[in-house]
Design a protein around this nucleic acid. Sequence first.
DNA 1: TGCGGTGAATTTTTT
DNA 2: ATTCACCGCA
Length: 789
Amino acid sequence: MSSFDESDAFEGAVLSLSQQAMAARSTPYLDGLNPEQRRAVEALDGPVLMLAGAGTGKTKALTTRIAHLLTTGRARPNEILAVTFTNKAAREMKNRVAGLLGETVEGMPWMGTFHSICVKLLRRHAELAGLKSNFTILDTDDQIRLLKQLIRAENIDDKRWPARMLAHLIDNWKNRAWTPDKVPSSEAAAYNNRGTEIYEAYQARLKTLNAVDFGDLLLHVVTIFQDHPDVLAKYQNWFRFILVDEYQDTNVAQYLWLRLLAAEHKNICCVGDDDQSIYGWRGAEVGNILRFEKDFPGAAVIRLEQNYRSTHHILAAASGVIDGNEDRLGKTLWTEKNDGEKLRLIGHWDGEEEARWIGEEIENLQTGTRGLDPVSLDHMAILVRASHQMRAFEDRFLTIGLPYRVIGGPRFYERLEIRDAMAYFRVTVSPDDDLAFERVFNTPKRGLGDKAMQQVIHAARNNGVSLLEGLRISLEDGALGARYRKSAGALLNGFDRWRLAAHRGDNHIQLAEIILEESGYTDHWKAEKTPEAPGRLENLKELVKALEQFENLQGFLEHVSLIMENEQEDATEKVSIMTLHAAKGLEFPAVFLPGWEDGLFPSQRSMDESGLKGLEEERRLAYVGITRAEEICTISFAANRRIFGQWQSALPSRFIDELPVDHVEILTPPGLYGGGFGAAATPGMDGVTRGSALEDRVRSADVYNSPGWKRMQARSQQRTMGQPREARNVVIDLEAVSSFGLGDRIFHQKFGYGAVTAIEGDKLSVLFDKAGEKKIVASFVTGIDDVPF
DNA sequence: TGCGGTGAATTTTTT
DNA sequence: ATTCACCGCA
């Protein structure tokens, strides 16, 4: 579009007007930096690679650099391109830059995720990709449904060749920036020799639907840049300074995108840590960061090596592990902190005992045994390799009444009910959205099955119109069977009415409620008696609430597809449970790393599929895990674990053998695993040693009186200052206990509805309708007015 | 069309 | 073990 320069310049106007004032301003923000950070901030010209180890203050350096660019007047806010991978990271960057400058940074339109920036670019130049600028963004689910249709049309057995597989394949190709014509012939055998062919058909179908998938966002923009040098040149000139966070996670498409944009000014600053590259399986190329100096000749390479997060022992242990990797740029982290506590290593008989032990440890920390002050649950985390490991902890914590939060579970906008509701909104806003139409045609069930759908599709095809119009035609010419007419007519009328209301500019929040009401969608969940139903209704309310932040439905839908997260923090202190991947970038005073067994961690599958490369990535994952800890890091493993309902025994992880002995304290008692490091372990040892001996040993461990422990508690206290600390829910909720009687119907967040079968102090035995009998702390259930049984 | 039974698959995750 | 998808029957 030709409006390029004006609109861009305009977007930045808010901040740039104070540019002169800024140039004259002093630079107090530089004072808090160490020499390397300062170098990274002040080396403004030419390519810079900032190798920032874990906990070395890279976000500080990055944001200060931006502040410096602005303050010195080297760039206007809208001439800086700053890319991150997640919305969270982008938000934090914005906030911190604002904090440094002491004002809000409204005028930085090009700070965001790769994807959100690409959406912006693509909406401007959509026609160059054969799209209209109001294209829809399909998520993984839409993508798979679409592929399924194509696969069926091609008469391929989607049992043997699942759509999921094809979706991954196409994603991988897009990550490598391969359009259908650029997929190399070496890939020809993919997906039963039909891969490229269906890829091409898929892209064509997307174009007719005026839709793109996530991979397309980058791919289309890269393609536009490559095919239209004039467009590229504008942006190359415009972005005087480029900053990239987590550069080690970039894939080929993102790399090309960056290289094209940086070609003119070459002021590109990439921040990353090759030792924290853990996303190889989704296309990230560590090679990008390893190759930086070749790609950008004359690049300044700055290493941030002073770690401000962890104690010496933790750092040394992490370094010892990561030393096992071959391909590294090499950094030596150091700290001015004290030695602190050694890492603690403990073996368990099985996964349940591991969960039990960690639960006790957490309670010890939390309540503060031996007269020591308590540590907040918010400052403890359990980091697992695979999400199925979480359940053992959830089960255990529910029974003992330990509050926890799972981070990175199913995302809000991926939930069934949210996607359904949004499909209604989509058809309302864009009647051409066939995918959305298909989704809601018989949702909730209104008697419109496959046959009715086929008729509508038929009518739409014959007349070359959307499915919604196809429905209208089918009703008008009577092609649709009499039995369908009533409900189909109601649906059509509904959409007509809602669309009119939207055009009229009716309040979009009310409109959303009306749509969900009149379509029968809320009623459908009200009528449903499954344990999830109340939660789903709750989520729908949340969705409507989220609309408040937008002008209208249209605006909401345009933005929402890229914000796949929901963060609703409640005030209760909780232990965090998450995967190692989700933990990247976070830090906690106390960290538990369970499940260090060969096959689970390092993951067998990773090693099978990617061999040594896979193992090295797993090792980096171990490094990420250990370096999350500030004061206390506890690694554990179990000899036996139930996997897919089958008991399996395992050897301790090879990473355990790689831990430097001097920095580890072994809590595993003699007798279990021969008492030594994991190396001597033999699975299937006698069960006699489990239980008391081990627990005694743990209880007698004197870590609670160590200096490191006390420091951690001191810090934990500081952080929670200002927040009232009463009402810790370890205290038995007497009211809750007394309010339940035998046979009462209750509801539980995780297990759903059930009936009380026994009461024992604050613990209830509950026979759940779905989940069977469980022992639950009374305060975790709510009574319901339902008639018993 | 919708329900209930049987069989197969099952890392890591953002956008 | 548990979930999810599909098939056959009412």
